[in-house]
């Protein structure tokens, strides 16, 4: 047991935190639906925008799509540098480029594009790790059967590695949900229901921050929302495990 004590410490700490967050009255009186709608729309649209380009770039990096080595090196360096940057700096870049230079102002669209910038290198790295063994094991066989690249990338790989792809996507969702600093500089903080992508909206994590720090008596609601965020992220971790692996033979 003493060898496990440090390893179990975080299990105990998580239980303590959940217990503390449960101690509020669990009511959501100061959280309008616009916060949830804004958060879901921004995460889903940014994931949709980031996934296909990241997947295709990962295919270039591992060699499925042939490109010169210097281009691959440049892409890898750029993705590595942006992936290592803190989200507040991504938020500053998003604020300068999307809000000011492109004239979008504080809006849902600016936050989607900023979140896209944040998710892209993360998804690229995850897809490279997914596609590398596929490239090593299946690419030559696929080429010998004259399987086209689009068929290989968009039909065969998803069929063979559904669970891994879903894992990457849920990782992207949890990364988007977990970020506050990048979006808080670009999405604004209005509580009205957005009518278009150019309207300002308050994102869930920023709303939790405002309730905890700026709104008198908002701490209880901040605790309840935090509890919901923990439950959602825990649920996201289990979705890929519910998808079983099926073995398909190349035909």
């Amino acid at each position: 047991m003493k060898n496990r004590i440090f390893a179990l410490s975080y299990v105990l700490l998580t239980l303590v935190i959940v217990g503390c967050l449960f101690s509020g009255d669990l009511a959501l009186t100061q959280t309008p639906l616009s916060v949830v709608v804004g958060t879901v729309v921004s995460i889903v649209l940014s994931l949709v925008l980031a996934t296909i380009p990241a997947y295709l770039m990962a295919a270039c990096v591992v060699g499925i799509i042939p490109v010169p080595k210097w281009a691959i090196a440049m892409t890898q360096y750029t993705a590595y540098l942006i992936a290592g940057m803190p989200s507040i700096l991504i938020g500053v870049i998003g604020f300068l480029v999307f809000c000011k230079w492109m004239g979008l102002g504080w809006s849902l669209l600016a936050s989607i594009l900023t979140l896209n910038l944040l998710l892209f290198p993360t998804l690229l790295t995850a897809f490279v790790q997914l596609l590398q063994p596929i490239c090593d094991n299946y690419l030559d066989a696929a080429r010998s059967y004259r399987v086209s690249l689009p068929h290989f990338l968009f039909i065969l790989v998803p069929k063979l590695y559904t669970r891994e792809l879903v894992e990457v996507l849920t990782f992207g969702v949890s990364r988007g949900l977990g970020d506050t600093a990048a979006i808080m500089l670009t999405s604004g903080s209005l509580l009205n229901m957005p009518n278009s992508l150019l309207d300002s909206v308050r994102i869930l994590n920023y709303h939790i921050y405002m309730l905890a720090m700026e709104v008198p008596g908002g701490m209880n609601e901040a605790k309840t929302l935090s509890l919901w965020v923990i439950v959602i992220i825990f649920g996201l971790l289990f979705i890929p495990r519910m998808i079983g692996n099926k073995n398909y033979e190349l035909q």
């Binding site: 390893a7 179990l8 975080y10 299990v11 998580t14 303590v16 935190i17 503390c20 967050l21 101690s23 990782f171 949890s174 990364r175 949900l177 977990g178 970020d179 506050t180 994590n205 939790i208 921050y209 905890a212 701490m219 901040a222 605790k223 935090s226 965020v229 923990i230 992220i233 825990f234 996201l236 971790l237």
Partner: peptide
């Protein structure tokens, strides 16, 4: 334990901040 570690890696820092302010 590994699942809890993965959960912590994905948690927003705001959630930990709320707990820290309360306790």
């Amino acid at each position: 334990t590994l699942s809890i570690m993965q959960l912590w890696c994905s948690l927003p820092s705001v959630v930990i901040g709320v707990w820290a302010i309360s306790q």
